[in-house]
Write a protein that binds this DNA or RNA. Structure first.
Length: 371
DNA sequence: TTCGTTACGGTTGAA
DNA sequence: AGTTCAACCGTAACG
């Protein structure tokens, strides 16, 4: 149970837990470094994360503005919510001869559903058969009385997958109902699963700064890394509902990273590399310490791990690596502008004017000075 | 050399 | 309580 048996070592020497997301701190580092103009390949080497993973995280960040992993596990929210069933029932009652596809059209037409969550014809047929079939015989009264107390809120067009009460309560309980997780609590940051596209971006520009993300999970990050495995599931689940809309977008957060015990030093190291890293010195955290892959032998992953040593060379004089970072103002283009152009430019290249304090697209202040 | 893509083995959580 | 299923994960390898 308490064995620090978690984690495997990849080809780059980095520690990872198969099947589990990288720690948020590392995810954050990836994005930060990318915004500083460091090439993905260098980030990969420096952080010892496979380039595929770096690529994926950066791509997702570009797309969603979130560094957070997607929601793991769970099931796709059912489209045949009570409300939908109710409407179907009503349609059927109103027109017993109605076809499933007509019902489907009406669900769309009446904005009960949208194209993403409208039940399939077969689903409607099944509903008609299993849930409403009897009603066609047993009468309308049942329909009318059967759902009297049910919420008749129009089904949210986008899978809101609102977690019933515990969601909000949990979030409130954790003090993160506002979407600004309380440090030390559990800033669960995950892309709330929104089907069909968990990565759809609705408001990138309105994203909270990455700093907030960092702060949010930063607080949880360290603590998370020190969370005992046995607590992972509990924490993870409990926190699943917390920290909604961390990014200021519809995505809600989960906390995938609680499972990665990571010593604060990891963040410190990281912070040394990018001073403005929101994940500063962390309180020892509220988590059970000393567990996990990133703390044990994996401690090297963050402490002894070349983030420092390697990072230093990289950050200051890494060959071909423009550590000066560029002006990054656009929300997404860091990859294209910073990562590509900036990275390709040798330090000192006038074309890329370094600024003392970079304010990244997301408001992440990355002072290049204090490095 | 770099990086996007994908198979793979794994974890997770709702049903 | 245990299983199933479908989501996600990061790595490794390919091109």
């Amino acid at each position: 149970m308490f064995y620090q048996t978690y984690g495997e070592v990849n080809q780059l020497g980095g520690v990872f837990v198969n099947g589990r997301p990288l720690p948020n701190a590392i995810r954050l580092r990836i994005v930060e470094l990318a915004q500083l103009g460091i090439r993905p390949c260098d980030i990969s080497r420096q952080l010892r994360v496979s380039h595929g993973c770096v690529s994926k995280i950066l791509a997702r960040y570009n797309e969603t503005g979130s560094i957070l992993p997607g929601a793991i596990g769970g099931s796709k929210p059912r489209v045949t919510t009570p409300t939908v069933v109710k409407y179907i029932r009503e349609y059927k009652q109103g027109d017993p001869g109605i076809f499933a596809w007509e019902i489907r059209d009406r669900l769309l037409g009446d904005a009960v559903c949208d194209k993403y969550n409208v039940p399939s014809v077969s689903s409607i047929s099944r509903i008609l058969r299993n849930k409403i079939g009897n009603l066609s015989h047993s009468g309308h009264y049942e329909a009318s009385k059967q759902l009297p107390s049910q919420h008749t809120l129009p089904y949210n067009p986008i899978y809101q997958y609102s977690y019933p009460n515990h969601m909000s309560s949990a979030a409130a309980k954790m003090g993160s109902a506002t979407g600004v997780p309380v440090p030390g609590v559990t800033g669960h940051m995950g892309i709330h699963r929104t089907w069909p596209s968990a990565h759809s971006v609705s408001n990138i520009l309105g994203l909270r700064s990455i700093v907030e993300q960092a702060a949010a999970y930063g607080g949880s990050e360290v603590s998370a890394y020190q969370t005992k495995m046995e607590d992972w599931s509990n924490v993870n689940r409990a926190a699943f509902s917390s920290a909604q809309s961390v990014n200021g977008i519809e995505k809600q957060a989960i906390d995938p990273d609680l499972k990665y015990p990571q010593p604060p030093s990891a963040l410190s190291a990281a912070s040394s590399f990018v001073p403005a890293c929101a994940v500063g010195p962390y309180p020892s955290s509220n988590q059970v310490p000393g567990y996990g892959v990133y703390s044990g032998p994996g401690a090297g992953y963050v402490t002894g791990h070349p983030w420092q040593s390697q990072g230093s060379s990289l950050s200051h004089s890494g060959p071909g690596i423009g550590m000066h970072g560029g002006d990054i103002h656009a929300p997404m283009p860091f990859k294209h502008l910073a990562a590509r152009e900036v990275a390709d430019r040798k330090p000192g290249n006038p074309a890329n004017k370094p600024s003392e304090s970079h304010s990244n697209p997301h408001g992440l202040s990355i002072p290049a000075s204090s490095t």
